[in-house]
Amino acid sequence: MRGASAPHPPRSGGARTPQFLSSLADRARSGDVLVTRDPDPRDPARGTDQERRSAVLILVAGTGIEDARIVLEERGNALRSQPGQFSLPGGGRDAGDDDDVETALREAQEETGLDPDDVRVLGAFAPIPMPWRGQRVTPVLAWTPVAPALGVQDPIEVERVVWASLTGPGSLSDPAHRRRGLLGGVPVGPVFELPEDAFVWGFTAMILENVLTGMGLEPVARTDPTREIPAQRRR
Rank of each mutant, 00 (worst) to 15 (best):
Gly202Glu: 03
Leu208Phe: 01
Pro155His: 08
Leu21Thr: 08
Val121Trp: 02
Gln109Asn: 06
Phe199Glu: 02
Met130Leu: 04
Pro39Glu: 02
Gly92Ile: 11
Ala25Tyr: 05
Asp98Thr: 15
Pro148Thr: 07
Ser81Ile: 10
Gln82Gly: 03
Glu73Ser: 11
Leu217Glu: 08
Leu172Asp: 10
Gly202Tyr: 05
Gly91Ile: 08
Ser12Thr: 14
Arg11Ala: 10
Met130Cys: 01
Met215Tyr: 09
Ile65Val: 15
Arg42Asp: 09
Pro230Asn: 10
Leu122Phe: 00
Asp38Leu: 10
Asp97Pro: 01
Leu105Gly: 08
Gly134Val: 03
Pro230Ser: 14
Met1Ala: 05
Ala176Arg: 15
Glu107Lys: 14
Gly62Val: 01
Pro169Ile: 13
Met206Ala: 15
Glu107Phe: 00
Asp67Met: 03
Leu166Lys: 13
Ser81Leu: 09
Thr223Ile: 04
Ile58Trp: 08
Ala149Met: 01
Asp67Ser: 11
Ile65Lys: 11
Leu122Gln: 02
Ala231Gln: 10
Pro131Gln: 05
Val162Lys: 09
Gly64Ile: 02
Pro175Gly: 11
Gly134Lys: 07
Gly189Leu: 05
Ala205Lys: 15
Ile65Trp: 01
Trp143Cys: 07
Ser87Ile: 09
Pro127Tyr: 03
Ala55Asp: 07
Val162Thr: 15
Val101Ala: 13
Pro139Lys: 14
Asp100Gly: 11
Leu172Val: 12
Ala15Asp: 15
Glu51Asn: 14
Ala176Ser: 12
Val146His: 12
Val158Thr: 15
Thr63Gly: 15
Arg234Tyr: 08
Pro18Tyr: 06
Val71Met: 05
Arg2Asn: 09
Gly170His: 05
Pro83Thr: 12
Leu34Phe: 03
Ala68Asp: 05
Pro44Gly: 10
